[in-house]
Structure formats: C-alpha cells, structure tokens
Write a protein that binds this DNA or RNA. Structure first.
Lengths: 341, 341
DNA sequence: TTTAGCACTCGGAACGACAGAGTGCTAAAA
DNA sequence: TTTTAGCACTCTGTCGTTCCGAGTGCTAAA
C-alpha cells in the first residue's frame, strides 16, 4: 500500500490531535482539522489503511486511533512543521539560563529547570566533560592523624572529593610525597588513564612507602572514575505525575531516573545534534512508554555534554525539538565563553 | 472520663493491630488479642469511650476504629513496649554501616540505605556539622583568565566548591593575595562569621584590590552559607509508593523531600535523643499524613547531625524507635572515632 | 472513488441488589 | 452497676445488569 499525500495529511492530523488532547481520535473529529473536505467514511477508510500499514492502532474496537511508534516516527521525520520558539520565549529562556553562568553545575541546573517548566517533562543533563578531560589538580588535606581528604579537580571544572584512611600516620613527608607523585604521574593526564591497573604498578614502584600511600591513590582512582561517569542533573521529576498515560510504570520510571548511571549513558549515546527515541525505540524497558529528546551541546566546538527531556510519547515534538536545540545551543555558548577566556 | 487499665489495654491492642494490618479494627477482631476475656459488646462500649476521649476515630459509621494522632501519642508515651533490635540485626547493620566509614558522606549514605531497607520508609540524614564548624582551608584555582574555582573545606570535612568570574584578569598576585587574606581572616574562623556584612567591611579595606577580589569573597560567603545549611541525604524515597494510605498527597510529599532545606530544618530542630512527630503534629502540612522519627547523633560528645525516617503514621514505633537509636549511636561512634585520632 | 446508512462492538457510567462488617442501643442477666 | 446477648441499622464494596455514546466496518448506492 502506498503512502498518498492524503494519507500523510490524515496521519499528521491524527498525531497532532492526539498530542493535543490525549484522547484516541475518531474519524469525525478529524473533519474540522483537514484542509480538504471529505466525509467521515472516507477518512475511516484511510485510517483503516494507515492502521494496516502500522502507523496507527486502536486501543480497542470502536475507540479512535492512536499513533504507533512508527506513526510518530514518520510524523517527526517527514511531516512535522517545526515550531521555532518566539523571540519572547528566547529572551526569557536566555535570561534564566544565563543567570546561572559562572558555575557549570548551576548553569545546567538552571537550564534543566527552564526546560522542565516549559515542557512539563523531567529534564536531565550531563555536566560538561569530554573524554579528553584531564587532571588539573590533586590535593591531599590531612583531617586526622590517619585520615585525609583527597580532592580532585578536572580540566572540565568538575570537583570531586572523598575522605580516606591510611594504615599509617600521615606526616608532612607523606603529603609532600603525595604531591610529587601526583605532579609526576597525574597532573595533565587524561582521567581515564588513572585506572586501577596503572595504580598498582605505580604503588609497587613506591617501594617502602607503598603501604603508606596506596589508599590515597586508590581513592584518587575512585574519584577519577566518579568524575568520568559524569554527573547527571535531574529536574522536574515530579512533572511526570501529571501524565496519567504513564500509568503504573511511573514508579519504575522514577526509580530509573534516580539512578544516574543509565541516564548518563543514555545522554552520551544520543547521536550528535538532536536525537529522539520514541517509546519502544528506547533500549531501556523502563522507558517503553516514554519518549526522550536528547540534544547535545558543544564547548569550543566539540561535544561536551547533553540535555534531555523525558516524558510520555505524546510529546509536542514540533515545539519541543526546536526548544531543546535552542537551550542546548545556549548552554554550549555560555560554557564556551566562560572557559576559553 | 478516666483512663482505666482496661481501656489502656484496648487502646494498645487497637494501635498494634492497626499498625500490623492497616485495616480499621473492629471489636470482634480484638477478642483474640487481649489477655482478658470479655464479650465484643463490652469492647464496643470501651472503644466508644476511647473515641469520645479522642484517642480513636472511625473512618465512617460501621467501619472499625483507627488511632488518632492523640491515640498514637498516648501509645508511644505510655503504653508501648520497645522492641530492641536482635543481636543478629545489630551485627548486620553494623557491618553495612561501617563499610562506609572513612568518608562521612558515604557513611551516612550507607546508614540511610540500611534504615530505608529495614523500615520501608524514606530515610533522611544530615551531614555532621556542628554550629562550631570552622574554615579549615580555602583555595582558589584559576580556570580561565577571568574565571576561578573557589573551594572551601570545613573542619567537619564538608567540601564545597563553586566557579566564579572576576571583572579583572586573574594574576598570580591575585591568587597570592587571596591566600593571604584567607589566612588572616578566615582560616580557623567559624563558618557563620563569614557573613556578607563582614565581607563588605573586608572588601572595603582591600582598597585598590577590592574590585579584583570582591567576587571571590562573595562566592566564598556563598559556600560558607551552603556548608552551614548542611547537606541532606535522602534514601529509599520510592519506598513511600508502597504505602497506599499516603494517598494523593504522596506527590507533594515527594516534592517536599526533594527540597533539602526544610528537611534540614526538620532534622536540626528535632529535640535531643529521639524525637517523634505524628501526623498533624508536624508543622509542615505536607507531612500531615506522615510520621517522622528523628534521632540525632553525637560526634565527640556534642550533637552533630541527625538521622530520620519519614513514613505513614502507621509506623511500627515499638520496633523502629530502638532501631533508629541504635543506628544513630553507631554513626556517632564511627564518626567520633575517625575524627579524633 | 466517495458517500450515506446501518448494524455491531466495546467501554464506561449508572443503578439496584446484596453480602459483610461493624456499630449503637435496649433489655435481660450477673 | 456492669456485662452480655440480641437486633436493627448503617455504610462500603462487589457483582450483574442495563443503557448510552462513540466509533468502527461493511454494503450498496451515487
């Protein structure tokens, strides 16, 4: 069966009506929304065809039609007219977002907040961090005779710290040795190089001081791994409660959101530019009833992090996609500016 | 109307039965749970009295009785037999909690995790921080020509950082000046002394360097305030979904939990030792259907933070109160030990 | 190819009947 | 005076029925 122009128009109208109302859409309701006049019977026939082609489905006999994943996909790829944010909106967004400039974390928090409010979805974002992030600085701060804080600052501005106990008392010499080892082996090196394996050989080479130092470096490796796994920010989680179509799965969905790691993966795996996953297109089963729009941002020309929204499949794609592009562009610009000077 | 011993026994039985089953309890059900034999009619009369006295209420005519806030209160204060954790439980808890020793944040995370799992409630905790916490160290790390990270480490081991932009380029002299000012005015001083007011006079005294330095110190004050407001950890939030009696308010409750600040207040205002707030005894209306058990912990003999659980009013107080006491005692011991050596 | 008409299906709301749980009251028994 | 048995009453939740509305698919005519 071929996709005629009329079928396209009908599909678009169904998708848009369903996105707007959340109700399965019947043939009669469509009459007013089309720019050509046919009877409801004709529309019925076309809709039956579209259902057969896999773009629409019925929740049950004698309910209206609802778009399938395939239907949304076709709509987004071929039919949708993007709705760029108004000048007014842009200004309002830019104002809020830039109020968080200076600190990357705050910036992304603001951006997430704005997105969540604007879209009624949950907003997620990853902190700026390329794989090429390096160790900018490592510090040791004695806290007790056998306890110290290890602090790691990365080139991306991420800061991680953790307390750590040593088997032996910490002397000024210990601290000095720590710094000299860091200066020699860590500072300026990519985070991913600080693997446990690398540390083992290092500790071995420390000879008599191995016992004294090893726990510090293990902690340092922890921190590096932590920084690499790239913090995930989450805003507007509770917006999801307003979408009844998420149904019982909402609890699992919220649990899923609370774990940072899969979200981090999700965001980093999104393809460049904008990436949209509809319902079952998601590889995580917790997202099977949700759609995700991911938009990455560049810092100084290279991909650094991403923003995303998670909501029901019934998203206003035409509006939200350009919004996400705008916000992520904005975030990238502000971050680039604040780093390269 | 006076509270006879028989009424007390009946009240206790009603509370315990309701806590166990979650169902309003009727006169017949109580027959088997009392250590004396009367007919259901007698119990009915007594229950009617208890209702009149304000300890019990009926969801509707011809349902069983449910304890009121007053009823729970009476039970907890006068009737309850505490159920100390078994030796086995103690060991298991101690094992999990102490696996997080070293880093206070990790420790409290573990403790929260254990509590949440054990109680089926949401667990909250505040990081160790007395009001007497002081500045242990302040750092400035240039990130760009006009951007720097300011890092604050407190005597309690809390670490806070924030990026910050200066109006003028940052030179090595700037950094040096920053350190000398910090050494002179901040290090060793209580966090609460770094008020904005104090900063203003300080900045004024900097003379020609005021412009260059002011934003750093403002940021530092931010960080101090942040550290003072004491991080709140939250675990097992999703456990609340299992309690149907929380009903529609659960959304607002979760929103409430997400904001750290009111929780921080809640925990710090709990009276010494164990503090229990039942339903409407809470001053936050979001908690009107919930109960809160707060237990503070000491570090080296002075109150430093607190652990709490939040769940439905229908908590197993007899069991959970001793548990909370045990865990908070444990946390205090471990923290004291790791700091004072 | 389109349209009008019609029979059919399904879900949801409304309704009444009914069983079950529990109460309060009364009058008799202890 | 206290306790108990008995009974009428109230309220909830469930089950089955009915009915309405929305929407479809099919057929036959335009």
């Amino acid at each position: 069966m071929e996709m005629t122009q009329r079928k396209q128009k009908i599909l678009a109208a169904v998708v848009e009506s369903y996105i707007r109302t959340g109700e399965p859409v019947g043939s009669k309701n469509l009459l007013g929304e089309l720019d050509f006049s046919v009877s409801s019977a004709t529309i019925r026939n076309e809709m039956a065809d579209l259902a057969e082609m896999g773009y629409l489905e019925q929740p049950h006999t004698s309910a209206g039609r609802v778009p399938t994943t395939l239907g949304y996909r076709y709509y987004i790829d071929k039919l949708m007219n993007k709705l760029e944010p108004t000048e007014e909106d842009r200004r309002a967004i830019a104002k809020t977002v830039s109020s968080g400039s200076g600190d990357p974390e705050q910036l992304l928090e603001k951006a997430g907040e704005v997105i969540a409010r604007l879209t009624g979805c949950a907003a997620v974002s990853t902190m700026p961090l390329g794989e090429k992030a390096t160790v900018r600085r490592a510090e040791i701060v004695p806290v007790g005779t056998r306890t110290a804080m290890i602090v790691l600052l990365t080139s991306a501005g991420t800061l991680k710290s953790k307390a750590c106990r040593s088997d032996m008392p910490i002397t000024p010499q210990t601290v000095e040795r720590f710094y000299s080892v860091c200066a020699a082996h860590f500072v300026g090196k990519p985070l991913e190089d600080i693997s446990t394996v690398m540390l083992q050989t290092l500790v071995a080479s420390l000879g008599e001081h191995a016992l004294e130092m090893s726990s510090f470096f293990v902690t340092l490796a922890d921190l590096a791994a932590d920084a690499l796994s790239s913090d995930v920010l989450l805003e507007g989680q509770s917006n999801l409660f307003n979408h009844r179509e998420l149904g019982g799965n909402i609890i699992e969905l919220m649990e899923f959101l609370r774990k940072g790691e899969p979200i981090s993966k999700l965001l980093s795996k999104g393809k460049d530019g904008i990436d949209i996953k509809i319902g079952t297109e998601n590889e995580y089963k917790q997202l099977a009833n949700s759609s995700v729009i991911i938009s990455h941002y560049d810092v100084n020309g290279s991909r650094s992090g991403a923003l995303g929204i998670i909501g029901p499949t019934r998203l206003n794609y035409a509006k939200l996609i350009p919004y996400m592009q705008f916000v992520s562009g904005l975030v990238g610009d502000i971050l680039s500016e604040s780093i390269d000077d």
